[in-house]
Design a binder for these strands. Structure first.
Lengths: 267, 267
DNA sequence: AGTACGCGTTTGGAATTCACAAACATAACG
DNA sequence: CGTTATGTTTGTGAATTCCAAACGCGTACT
């Protein structure tokens, strides 16, 4: 037979990749049955069965009356990740405060592999529960169409932004989404100057948000905070002055907290 | 060589078990280096290396300056699990309310494999941030020494409780922890009668809590809520009447929400 | 009732992957 | 500059994985 391993491709454990794919599939299609998974997974029934049994043993998957779901082990492990993330420890209380001040949704996010992940979310009194917000935390989001994302991008160097565009594209989420790279670069420059980014129905129709970057000790961006609300509640002075001020203040306080957090950890 | 597979042991994927063990080790020892992992993992350096590279590719692990941590993928997957858990959807708002009413920590937990996992936590104004609470959500906890745990146990049938005791033991967390099975059974009966459970410094010195079970449509326990506070703030009337009332009310409302949630999902 | 069918589980055995060991880089010391 | 500590790559025997096919079981259909 041919030497199927690529000459200089580094070695990987194929079974782990397979398991990862199975988990991703379970996450994507919620509540799949055994059959659903077999269809989607080009592997024989027997193989899929053995993987699922193993993942169930390990707590990564739960089977209940024929349907598979991700197991509670992800809850505890996700919690560990958050608690070990400096930004979360430094920002959590401040995000709660900002949510109270504005009465709206506040998000704390980090960039990860060209997308962003929500580390914490706090809901002010006006913010009604929305399925959208739930789903948003279930998968990494694009950076080019959120206020936090653009706030972070504005402090990456140009080549890094270009790489991200190449890899992720500039998906048109709404008619306001920026889909032209040069347009994006111009806006990033403006964001850098004014210190905050706005998202004017670029991600979701009817929703605006304002985000500011959080820079770490070394000057690198380590995350961003944002306030999100329906267009009707976020316009005029409030949209262009008040909220941006509050968001930037919060970001600044988190930056300071972050320095002491990191300092204490390295002590 | 001998036929190493056990005659009637069901088949599993060994590589997935190995990967799971590596992840557990990273979680247990925070920030381990490559060397740390090799010591702890009886596998050759080369093997450990290949696994870590694979897990990093898949987003389950992050390497930064020589230290390994769990990756952000756990955050998004954990979020998916929570959002798909009926109890969380049904109970979240009610837990927030209870936290506001009492000004203390409120927990929403589910039982899982003889232990309990915190699905949601809300902090009232009096509740100061404590490392203890962070860590508590990072691993499943024992059922016999928490108010939520005992509340859930009180509605399991006896043989199930015995199985859990056999498997998990009755670890003595403080001098107040119940370590005698018969003592536990007597208390569970009392809990069943009065409708709520108390934890009087049985898990952690100086901390009391009050928990009530949440029963699902089919009568099975699907979780529990609790209020936790320092002994100084939880005594007398407040400990024996006021808070138990509030906790039981909250549990009851969540039960109702749960019915409609489940009903809507099955529609 | 009988039988065909769908669905999930188990099993034999060939093909592939895994995992050890040892060699190889690379960085960190004296 | 040699020596140790640490991390990465590679060759190869041994063990695992994975397909295909058979099996069990409950259900729908005749």
């Amino acid at each position: 037979m041919d030497d199927s391993r690529q000459a200089d491709a580094p070695r990987r454990i194929k079974s782990v990749q397979t398991a990862s794919e199975i988990l991703a599939t379970i996450q994507r299609r919620s509540d799949p049955t055994f059959g659903d998974l077999c269809d989607e997974l080009d592997a024989s029934k027997g193989t899929v069965h053995t993987y699922l049994a193993t993942l169930e043993d390990e707590g990564f998957v739960v089977k209940s009356d024929g349907h598979y779901r991700l197991g509670f082990r992800f809850v505890t492990m996700g919690e560990t990740v958050r608690n070990e993330t400096d930004l979360y420890r430094a920002g959590q209380l401040e995000v709660d405060k900002l949510a109270e001040q504005t009465s709206e949704y506040v998000h704390l996010t980090v960039s990860y592999r060209g997308k962003e992940v929500t580390m914490y979310e706090s809901r002010g009194d006006n913010a009604i529960a929305m399925d959208y917000h739930l789903r948003m935390r279930e998968a990494p989001q694009y950076l080019h169409c959120t206020s936090t994302g653009k706030a972070m991008l504005s402090h990456f160097n140009e080549s890094r932004v270009r790489d991200i565009i190449d890899e992720q594209g500039l998906a048109e989420q709404t008619e306001n989404t920026i889909t032209d790279p040069e347009h994006l670069f111009r806006e990033l420059e403006q964001i850098r100057e004014q210190g905050y980014a706005i998202n004017d129905e670029e991600e979701l129709r009817g929703m605006r948000s304002i985000g500011a970057p959080i820079r770490g000790v070394d000057g690198d961006v380590s995350g961003a905070v944002s306030v999100t609300a329906p267009t009707s509640r976020l316009s005029g002075e409030r949209f262009h002055t008040e909220i941006p001020e509050l968001v930037m203040q919060a970001a600044n306080i988190i930056e300071v907290n972050l320095e002491t957090t990191v300092f204490e950890r390295n002590r």
